[in-house]
Amino acid sequence: MSVLSAQHLRKSYGDQAVVDGVNLAIEKGQCFGILGPNGAGKTTTLRLLLGLIAPDSGQIQMFGHAIPQQAREVRQRVGVVPQLDNLDPDFSVIENFMVYGRYFGLSKTEIAQRIPALLDFAGLSNRADAKIQDLSGGMKRRLTLARALVNDPDLIFLDEPTTGLDPQARHLMWQGLRRLLNQGKTIILTTHFMEEAERLCDRLVILDHGRLIAEGAPRELIAQHIEPCVTELYGENIAHWRDSFAAQLCARHENVGETLFCYSSDGAALMQNLHTQTHLRFLHRPASLEDVFLKLTGRELRD
């Protein structure tokens, strides 16, 4: 049975349908990704699933309870990492756990017992009494995640958990999320980073203009939408090269600004050709989720 499912979710603001007929089913222990360009409806979908806002139509079930009607009961088993850190700046690291734990009705002793493990999880064992203002961006993010675990939730929502983090902090965050998945927790995350979704997510959906436009495991989606190899060519003479060779060497190609993207099944013939073209710079790589994402949602800016 699904931990969380939603059928025919709709939410409009004025004339604009922000979430437009979304269906989701998330199994226990999965890491489920919700991807989409800015304004696609990701955060609104999360707020609907959490029961913070009521849908115009559609049903949501979490742990067998109806959302938003029984959101209060269900939230006892849920942890949330919001897009923007909302740690309590009036308190130290430890006090943040204490105060937040009380919102779940936990006793002081229960929270105190959990704090050492939470500090360890966040890598903040030696910063227990630090003020929030003195923590780095990565530390705050990890603390926000650890705080969301204070009630030992079965399901964790993360809204863009690694936006604004440096690579070190991002990798540390990913390790933390993998540990949670290994413990059998279910994770729902939204992200702009395709690499993140590809690494972490068992399944994902791509949302655009409030609708689901793709759904599946990352590998499946790549196989379904994009040829296995992608070669990016840069340089002034790519137009000339394209007219001479593209049709013959690429299954499909597209021009984006000064770059030519060539899609091929193995790329061996293409590579052979490119090694003789010394005036062209190129990058040859396996197809990625980002290629799928850009193919499906287009390349225009969305903000």
């Binding site: 913070l52 209060r72 919001p82 919102y103 779940f104 009705g105």
Partner: peptide
Amino acid sequence: DAILNTPL
């Protein structure tokens, strides 16, 4: 907002 993500 943080509190609203809890059972409150």
